[in-house]
C-alpha cells in the first residue's frame, strides 16, 4: 500500500531532473505494462473485490438478505473469539505444528533435491524422483490409515520391529500419546510431501549454469564443496522466496491431516485453527464468526509476511516485495 503513494507521488512532472515523470516512464515501459496490467486487473476482480465480504464479520449475517440489511454487531465476534479458551489452544497447536513443519518440511526437501542432483545415473535419478513424489497423490485418508496401522499395538509394523530388536517389551500406544502427536503429523507430512516439495528446488538447480560445475571439477573441488559453494548459493534466492511465503502461511495449515490422524485421546493436541473455524463457523451457519476468524487469520498472515519480507530484505537482500 505504501507503494501506491510512492508511485503516485511521482506522477507530477518532477522537479528532480534525474527522475523522469511517471507518464514518460509509463510510455517507455508500455510493453511491460501491457504484459502485466491485464493480469493485475484479473487479480483485482477476483481477489480484491470479494473483500466486501469482510463486512460480515461485524454483522450477524444471514443469507438471503442484502449486506446492508443485516444486523450490525460491531466487534462482538472478535470478542467472542478472543475470549474463548479453545481459540488459544487451537492456536498453540497450529503454531506448534506449522513451526515443526517449517523446520522439517522445508529443509529436508532442499537436502533431498541437492542430493538427488548428485546422483549421476540418469535412469536411477529419474526413477527416484518420480517415485518420491507419488505419495503426494495419495489422499490423507489413505496415508493416515497407513500410519495408524503401522503404529498400532495390534500387530503394527513399528511395534513389531521395536520388539524384535529388543528395544521394548510391550507394544507402545503411539497414537494415544498427546505429546507425540505433533511429531507423528510432521513425520507423516514429510513422508507424503517431501518429493513433491523438492521439485521446485530441482528446477532451481537445473537453472544453474553447468559450466560452473565443470570448472569446479577441473579445479578438483569435492562434491561437498561443490554443493556448498555452487549449488546452495545458486538456489538461495528460491529458498528465501519460498521461506518468506511459507512464513506467511504459518497460521493456516489446513486441518485434514490433523483431523484424520487424530483421535479422542489426543484432541488437545490435534485441533487446529482451520478446523475450529469450520466447526464453530461455517458448519454451524455462523458465517460472520467464520469471517471474523478469516480476518484474524489474514491479518496475522500479512504481518508475518511483511516481517519475514523485511528481515530477509535487510539481511539477505532477498524479498518478494
Amino acid at each position: 500500500m505504501k507503494a501506491v503513494t510512492e508511485t503516485s507521488g511521482s506522477t507530477e512532472p518532477t522537479v528532480n531532473k534525474k527522475k523522469k515523470g511517471f507518464w514518460t516512464t509509463f510510455k517507455e515501459q508500455k510493453i511491460l505494462y501491457g504484459m502485466s496490467l491485464p493480469f493485475i486487473i484479473v487479480v483485482f476482480i477476483f481477489s480484491y473485490l470479494p473483500v466486501w465480504g469482510w463486512i460480515m464479520a461485524f454483522q450477524n449475517y444471514r443469507p438471503g438478505r442484502g449486506i446492508f440489511e443485516q444486523k450490525w454487531v460491531g466487534f462482538d465476534h472478535f470478542v467472542t473469539l478472543f475470549t474463548d479458551d479453545k481459540f488459544y489452544l487451537v492456536l498453540r497447536n497450529t503454531l506448534a505444528m506449522s513451526f515443526m513443519g517449517l523446520i522439517v518440511g522445508f529443509t529436508i526437501p532442499i537436502l533431498f533435491a541437492v542430493l538427488l542432483n548428485e546422483i549421476r545415473g540418469s535412469v536411477f535419478k529419474r526413477t527416484v524422483q518420480t517415485i518420491s513424489y507419488l505419495p503426494h497423490f495419495v489422499s490423507w485418508v489413505v496415508v493416515a490409515g497407513i500410519v495408524t496401522k503401522m503404529l498400532s499395538v495390534d500387530g503394527g509394523a513399528v511395534n513389531q520391529l521395536l520388539m524384535a530388536l529388543g528395544f521394548i517389551d510391550q507394544p507402545i500406544q503411539f497414537m494415544a500419546q498427546g505429546s507425540w502427536f505433533w511429531y507423528i503429523v510432521t513425520a507423516s507430512d514429510l513422508w507424503k510431501e517431501m518429493g513433491w516439495n523438492a521439485i521446485i528446488y530441482l528446477a532451481a538447480i537445473a537453472g544453474i549454469d553447468q559450466e560452473q560445475f565443470e570448472a569446479a571439477k577441473v579445479d578438483g573441488a569435492s562434491r561437498i564443496r561443490q554443493i556448498w559453494h555452487i549449488t546452495l548459493p545458486s538456489i538461495a534466492p528460491t529458498i528465501a522466496i519460498l521461506l518468506i511465503m511459507s512464513i506467511g502461511h504459518l497460521v493456516s495449515i489446513g486441518f485434514e491431516k490433523q483431523f484424520l490422524l487424530g483421535n479422542p485421546l489426543v484432541v488437545d493436541y490435534s485441533e487446529v485453527l482451520d478446523l475450529y473455524a469450520l466447526n464453530y463457523g461455517l458448519s454451524m451457519g455462523r458465517f460472520s464468526f467464520g469471517t471474523a476468524i478469516g480476518m484474524f487469520n489474514s491479518i496475522v498472515s500479512i504481518i508475518l509476511l511483511l516481517t519475514a519480507n523485511g528481515l530477509f530484505k535487510k539481511f539477505m537482500k532477498q524479498s518478494i516485495m
Partner: peptide, 15 residues
C-alpha cells in the same frame, strides 16, 4: 480392546 479409542473404522472392521 486396548485400541478402542485410537482405531479407525477400517481397523475396527478388519478386526
Amino acid at each position: 480392546d486396548k485400541e478402542t479409542f485410537v482405531q479407525k473404522t477400517d481397523q475396527y472392521e478388519a478386526k
